[in-house]
Design a protein around this nucleic acid. Structure first.
Length: 201
DNA sequence: ACGATGGTAATTGTGTTGCC
DNA sequence: GGCAACACAATTACCATCGT
């Protein structure tokens, strides 16, 4: 699970002297808390990500919930997942369409209650959602259902309409890898290529 | 069978918050 | 300000797995 940690692990050779063995044991003792610290950091980072993902989905304002307990985040997520309607569908394509529709409905219902988008954009998105749900032909086909590998698919966000007019270009997010070195993650921000088509991803 | 190793549960220490 | 309650981080102990 933690590839970088392996490089720091203590190596025990079969013919280690007692002194070396002791030294290795000591080294392990010092590394163990470090590894545990990184593990906790990973947990926390994922929990934070989960928080930023789940709050908009349940229609809560991110800024209002800056201080949220970990248990709350998990509870919210569990509740949200349980609330997702499980409609029986025949095949993967139907499943995709059902999910897409449910997603549109959900976005449509929570969008007015958030301040993620300005009023005009929010209205535009809602109009699109309504028209999209009215005409099933507008529902995009599932790229994953054709047996194509997800890895082989193009970056989805490349053709997405920019929902937030204030956010332009690429956003760089800096995090740390397991060695504590910063990683610059370049996140593509939606560009306003095609105003006609909006996709939830 | 045994020791090394990694993962996780349990325990302990510390900071924060709310109440009196 | 003092105190209790709480949340979280750090540390320690234990267990499962794997390689020899």
């Amino acid at each position: 699970m933690s590839p970088n940690i392996a490089s720091e692990t203590v190596e025990y050779s079969p013919r280690m002297t007692v002194a070396k063995r002791k030294e290795a044991s000591e080294l392990r003792k010092t590394l163990k808390p470090l590894m545990e610290k990184r593990r906790r950091a990973r947990i926390n980072e994922s929990l934070n990500q989960l928080k930023t993902l789940i709050l908009p989905l349940i229609g809560k304002d991110n800024s209002r919930y800056s201080k949220l307990e970990k248990a709350d985040i998990l509870e919210m997520t569990v509740r949200f997942l349980k609330d997702i309607p499980s409609t029986p569908v025949q095949n993967a394509a139907d499943s995709f369409r059902e999910g897409y529709k449910a997603c549109l409905q959900h976005v449509s219902s929570i969008l007015p209650n958030t301040n993620l988008l300005d009023k005009e954009t929010s209205q535009r998105v809602n109009e699109y959602i309504q028209s999209s749900m009215a005409s099933p032909a507008d529902t995009p086909s599932c790229q994953n259902c054709s047996g194509q590998s997800p890895l082989a698919r193009p970056q989805r966000s490349e053709s997405v309409v920019c929902l937030n007019p204030t956010a332009r270009g690429l956003r760089t997010e800096t995090t740390s890898n397991l060695n504590g070195h910063p990683i610059n993650r370049v996140q593509p921000v939606p560009q306003p290529h095609d105003v006609r088509m909006w996709r939830p991803w």
